[in-house]
Design a protein around this nucleic acid. Sequence first.
DNA 1: TTGAAAGCGCTAACAT
DNA 2: ATGTTAGCGCTTTCAA
Lengths: 364, 364
Amino acid sequence: MTDVTLREVARLSGCSVSTVSRVLSGNRPVGSETAGRVRAAAESLGYVPNQVARSLRSRSTGTVGLVLPQIANPYYPALVRELTRALLAGGRAALLADCDDDSEAEAARVADLLGRRVDALLVIPVDEHRSRATVADAAARVPLVLLDRGCGPQVADSVAVDHGVGIAMVMEHLAATGRRRPAFVGAAGNDSAAAERAAAYTAGLAHFPQADPGAVELGDFSVEWGRAAVDRLRPLRHDAVVCANDLIAIGVIQRLRERGADVPGDVAVTGFDDIPMARLTVPALTTVRQPVRELAAEAAALLDRQLSGQAGGARRSVRLTPELVVRASTVHPPVADAALPTQHTPRAGSEADSGAHDPAKETQ
Amino acid sequence: MTDVTLREVARLSGCSVSTVSRVLSGNRPVGSETAGRVRAAAESLGYVPNQVARSLRSRSTGTVGLVLPQIANPYYPALVRELTRALLAGGRAALLADCDDDSEAEAARVADLLGRRVDALLVIPVDEHRSRATVADAAARVPLVLLDRGCGPQVADSVAVDHGVGIAMVMEHLAATGRRRPAFVGAAGNDSAAAERAAAYTAGLAHFPQADPGAVELGDFSVEWGRAAVDRLRPLRHDAVVCANDLIAIGVIQRLRERGADVPGDVAVTGFDDIPMARLTVPALTTVRQPVRELAAEAAALLDRQLSGQAGGARRSVRLTPELVVRASTVHPPVADAALPTQHTPRAGSEADSGAHDPAKETQ
DNA sequence: TTGAAAGCGCTAACAT
DNA sequence: ATGTTAGCGCTTTCAA
């Protein structure tokens, strides 16, 4: 298993290492006959270019660091999948760094990645404030794009969904379906998504003259907080609960039902993100779907822009519009599909899905 | 932002590059006074070792390839988290490769990782048969450990939960709680986990003299298949449904309830894996918890063994015993906690959990 | 178009 | 304990 090097390919094909390099990396013109000989030699020796040596010389590893607060957060796996795909399209691989929701760990992971000479960083910051120094320092050294959450103005290019528009869509939907007295269950966290969603809720109250503007409960982005918040609200005074993410909404629905409320009959409940769980709860959750593939593609595009040196002076901040997904937690289904048998044919073998990933079809 | 190199540190500290290298990589003894000077110089220059150069010279990148069928499968994120932690403890970083459930993509990802000179590979194979050649070839080049799913005998070291024991625990629990006529909903897939779980169910029927041994439905590992399987069984003839994973169980519960059955009153339902969703369904799912952290630790240990050249002739196959988690889908809860208010205090800021990750506390 | 030679930044022999 | 030297495998000037 001793590795085959360029030299050996050169020897076998009877030309110099530089020619072989030119053929295999395809940077410079080479005579077609020589090129053929070289390729044949490489093939027959089972030559695999050593990316480490290539990286040292060319000062580019073809590697991007993916820095996440917590991979187990159910919103991230789909995003990671699309990011790795988008990076792969550019021949890049992702070095994964999980920060365990800790900004010190985040700083350590980023330092490690810089030592490994990643070409760029894709960061979902742990904390809007505590991550700022880490992100700013890193952005000064390598191309960096922030994802999903902000980190102060002008720190780096960023891509995120427009949280405000998402909440606005939810509130219009609720108003249009006859809800009059909403409440909000959100998060008091140190990330920009939490703040934007809460602010948008308050703004959206303009649609609800009868609403109590004080019916806002802020905790964290968890199922348990959703449950607890229900006990802090006076459920019967509200006919809708807008939640800052799906986990909260799942907790809210659970607790409302335990307390005898009908969802959506008595109370409509909405989430945000459209995690895989959202369509599997009973009732299924009306929520705001993040355009995950597009977010990933935009992030990759911003990275490419920076990597190719086209990055102008000002930072770019891309905001994508999310999509409202209406399910049974806000409206009764038009067809009582409980009476219909389920259609399903198991997939044969392991065919690739070429299209978007369907979370209900994940296999273990 | 021009990078500081060893030479500059050497110049500033007034000694040679090799001395500096020895101090900073800590391989060889160095006089304590010189060491201090070197460290001070490195610090003041903001020196960051270039891992690419180090890798080229030392023939080790400190990088492990993590090859997954599909990161969006809800069982994997927790595993990935623990794997990255375990690798980090050894100073290694993970290069993530998602295969989109496609064995050709898997082969391509593995080839790419080998070109990047990963020190080792951690592979969850896509398909027991189609992945074999890829895995075998890779295992001949670098240390490799299979995780979760097998890939034929003696192909590589492997770590997995003992699927059979998990199903046996489930069946003993069902028998002990008075169930008499179980059915099984599993997967016909090309992976060893599916086969082992199905075989264990058949073996476990010894506890159920009244059971119909033909009540076995095989499809795939999805929620939709779980729903469809209910329509193929005759629900009223069964008082328990053993499912091969949690997604199937979630589908089974949904469909049973739509058809008017009480879970667990009429029918008990069990899953496998204990994905985060399992505790969030209504009723919460009795399931078999995979010891994720231990699986990750064992995998890392096997890698270390191979990397340090202690690997003896025979392949090792580590099997860990899973844990039965009893929830409301098989037994009525002892306390009617629906009447109790929920206890919850949002976490302040972003403290790290030091212990095991609690999926209900994930934040977005 | 091709070859010879330099060198990316570091570690590991080999000296001292 | 420290310095000198030779590469790791590749890309890229610079010549021819």
